[in-house]
Design a protein around this nucleic acid. Sequence first.
DNA 1: GTCCCGCAGT
DNA 2: ACTGCTGGAC
Length: 264
Amino acid sequence: MAATDRQVFFTKNLLAWHAGHHRPMPWKGERNPYLIWLSEIILQQTRVEQGLPYFERFKATYPTVTDLANAPEDEVMKLWEGLGYYSRARNLHAAAKHIAHDLNGSFPATYEGIRSLKGVGDYTAAAIASFAYDLPHAVVDGNVYRVLSRYFGIETPIDSTAGKKEFAALAQGLMEIRKLGNWWGRNFSISQFQTKRLQPGHNGLRRHALYPGCAEMWNLSDAATLRSFFGRKNGGVACENEEAGAAASVFQLPDFQSGGRGFH
DNA sequence: GTCCCGCAGT
DNA sequence: ACTGCTGGAC
């Protein structure tokens, strides 16, 4: 399926935006699949501010997947205390033991292998596959739903099977637009973009509130409509005073070579 | 009190 | 296809 101009435009501008908006996080640029897995499990259903100290503690206490596998269950649960959704911790520990005992301590390096781990669903498998191994799997989480529904004007409810399919297909299509960057760079960008620009507290996901002016953004040469999505304070969407630089750079964005290591 | 939105169990 | 899971922000 060929990408539309709008899809190419979106991808280019997203990457340009991300290049100018680094949000430093301990796992950004991380290539260790164990640490990526750990951070993704902690971040399921959990905000970065809440999960960050837990990630640091787990990383310090269990530097490798074998360390985690060898830890007693009650110690792992104790370290998880306060994060909620305790089945995540039980699955994390069970999967660590599986990797240590059945896979010689080496983390699975294929999407299917990662996806088969306890507690790892489509989203987490795609995140680990692309961030650790640069495999072309699109991450489709709540952040991605929010960004795509607004930019592409999709109103299909994401809590329906049809909606999940539609968003997954669109996200994967965006991944496959070539020569615009690498897979994990693109995945990272879209998630970060939401974090900065479209916060759930301002536009409820269930309501599928489209970004104001979304319908008018089909004019791809209009810098003002571009800014309305990628920068300007508008319609209750949380923004900071950083739109000028981002908006100025988007039209000069060169195509990146795929397979590179941009966007740290 | 409502909302959050990834995964697993059913 | 539908539901429960935790704690925290609002």
